[in-house]
Simulated assay, not measured.
Amino acid sequence: MNRATTAALSILALLSLTSLTACGGESGSDADSAQKPAATTPAEKQETPEERLKQMVITKADVSGMDVSDADVATSDASEFAFAKSQREVTVEEPVCAPLAYAMNQLPLDEPQADVTRSVSKGLNDPFTYVLLATYESGRSEPALTDLSKAVDACAGGFTAKANGNTSAYDSVTAEEPVAEAGDESVAFRSTLTFQGVEHTVHTQAVRSGEVLAVFFSVDGTAIANARPSDAKLPSAVVKAQNAKLA
């Protein structure tokens, strides 16, 4: 885990307090050889859903001038900085708002077959964008995105999520236009939160491409830690680069 990613996750944790040979043998005659069963070629190992996602997820080579790091807090050494490591740890007073809490805390929507997460930033003091890819069984990705869309409308007045003694409170949730149109459908929204009396805006977009969902979330952790107002917009270059790999 590099220093930049750990620092960003630390800030998110701070915010949450308020707001992963054929059978041998001796050779014999030609006749003996003919009676022996032919050697079989081992079946080619099938790629797992997680392995496929790792081939699809954004890398440093895809975004010029940015660092890309593994941000899978569920399995990394940075797990202690996460608001939650699984959906089971999260509680929301209004269950309809739960997908929002998942999307803004690098947790997958619904129940995917596998998921991977990366963090993207120009530098330690710049906003971080988290990219989560999740793949689903046939027919499961569309309902997952529908639930997120319903949550945006139902939780416009804000909501509070809790996990492991931490609390994340959001003042408002507002639908907005996607940063970049891609895939089969998209849902985009901004959320406001207040920390130490200062308002901050974070942005999220989810894109469905077949049975894969890409969720993008941007936050300016440095501004939050320094009580400086922030509006962490999603970088279009990151969204476009990731979507291009899913096309």
Rank of each mutant, 00 (worst) to 15 (best):
A175S: 14
A163P: 06
Q205S: 02
T201H: 00
D171A: 09
L145Y: 07
A180F: 04
G210P: 02
R140D: 10
G158E: 02
D220G: 10
A182N: 13
V173T: 12
A154L: 05
A232S: 05
L234D: 00
A188N: 02
K150P: 05
A188P: 01
P143A: 08
P178D: 09
V202P: 00
T204V: 10
Y170T: 00
S138A: 15
D171Y: 02
V198G: 06
T160P: 01
E137G: 11
L213K: 08
S209R: 14
T174M: 07
T204F: 02
T194Q: 02
P235I: 03
A237H: 03
E211T: 15
G165P: 07
T204S: 06
A232H: 11
G157A: 08
E137W: 02
E142H: 13
G221C: 11
K150A: 13
Y170F: 15
G221E: 03
D147Q: 11
G210F: 07
L193A: 03
D220C: 09
F189I: 00
T201A: 02
V238A: 01
V173C: 08
A237Y: 03
A163R: 06
S149Y: 09
K233R: 12
S218I: 13
L145A: 11
E185Y: 04
A225P: 03
D153H: 01
Q205L: 07
S218L: 12
P235Y: 00
E185R: 09
V207F: 10
A180R: 01
T135I: 00
S191E: 11
A134S: 12
P235M: 03
